[in-house]
Simulated assay, not measured.
Amino acid sequence: MKITILCVGKIKEKYFRDAIAEYEKRLGRYCKLEIVEVADEKTPDGASEAEEQQIRRKEGERLLKYLEGKNCYVIALAINGKMLDSVALSEKVSDLMVKGNSHIVLVIGGSLGIADEVLKRADEKISFSKMTFPHQLMRVILLEQLYRSYRIINHEPYHK
């Protein structure tokens, strides 16, 4: 199975890059992992709703460009998505594999969220919390939960 983390922005902090590298290494035995970063837009202080909408739209166009022509199951991480616990996420991944989905793309938006056009393209929306997390941290959390999912799928121990 191929899993792509499609995200807006680069990781600047070394401690996040180190954590991401660790989970990439761990996940390597379970799936083919790809992390695709698209450029983020700078948000001016005191941006209006219209400016924020335009920023989301520009970032969304970059995300959709990656998805063009790809046969993949798209899951957007959105605050209003369905909440899953770790077991339910592992069941989702397992179910997608059984149904023949060979490529899952998980989308993490930028600091202003995900454009409506990308949410419409998504096959499903999931939420990790009603809280808002920095998108750099969300990438680490997502990778950890994917690793946990594969450990659960393979009946391997993992700390609770």
Rank of each mutant, 00 (worst) to 15 (best):
M1A: 12
M1R: 04
I3F: 07
T4G: 05
T4V: 12
L6F: 09
L6E: 09
L6D: 06
K10T: 04
I11H: 03
K14Y: 05
Y15Q: 01
F16S: 00
F16Y: 14
D18T: 13
D18L: 07
A19R: 04
A21D: 15
E22G: 05
E24T: 10
L27R: 02
L33T: 04
V36F: 02
V36I: 15
E37M: 10
E37H: 12
A39T: 10
A39D: 11
D40C: 07
D40T: 14
P44E: 08
P44A: 00
D45A: 12
G46T: 11
A47G: 09
Q54D: 09
R56I: 01
R56Y: 01
E59A: 08
E59F: 04
E61C: 08
R62L: 06
R62V: 13
R62H: 08
R62F: 11
R62N: 10
R62T: 15
K65F: 05
Y66E: 12
Y66P: 00
L67M: 11
L67I: 07
E68G: 07
E68L: 10
G69D: 08
K70T: 14
N71M: 02
N71W: 00
N71Q: 13
C72G: 05
Y73L: 02
Y73G: 13
V74K: 00
V74F: 04
V74M: 07
A76I: 13
A76M: 03
L77N: 05
N80H: 11
K82C: 09
M83V: 09
D85F: 02
V87P: 10
V87E: 13
A88Y: 11
A88S: 14
E91M: 03
K92H: 11
L96Q: 13
M97A: 15
V98K: 15
G100C: 01
G100K: 03
N101V: 15
L106N: 00
L106E: 07
L106I: 15
I108N: 08
G109I: 03
G109V: 02
G110K: 00
S111Q: 13
G113A: 02
D116G: 12
D116L: 06
L119M: 10
L119S: 06
K120T: 08
R121P: 00
R121C: 08
A122W: 05
A122K: 04
D123C: 01
K125M: 11
K125N: 06
I126D: 08
S127Y: 08
S127M: 08
F128C: 04
K130R: 15
M131G: 14
T132E: 08
F133E: 12
P134Y: 01
H135L: 11
Q136N: 04
L137C: 09
L137F: 12
L137E: 11
M138V: 13
I141Q: 05
L142M: 06
L143W: 02
Q145W: 02
L146D: 04
Y147H: 03
R148I: 05
S149M: 03
S149H: 01
S149W: 02
Y150A: 01
Y150N: 05
R151M: 10
I152W: 07
I152E: 04
I152F: 07
I153H: 08
I153Y: 10
I153A: 05
N154A: 00
H155Y: 12
H155C: 10
H155K: 14
E156C: 03
E156S: 09
P157W: 00
H159Q: 11
H159C: 08
H159R: 09
H159P: 15
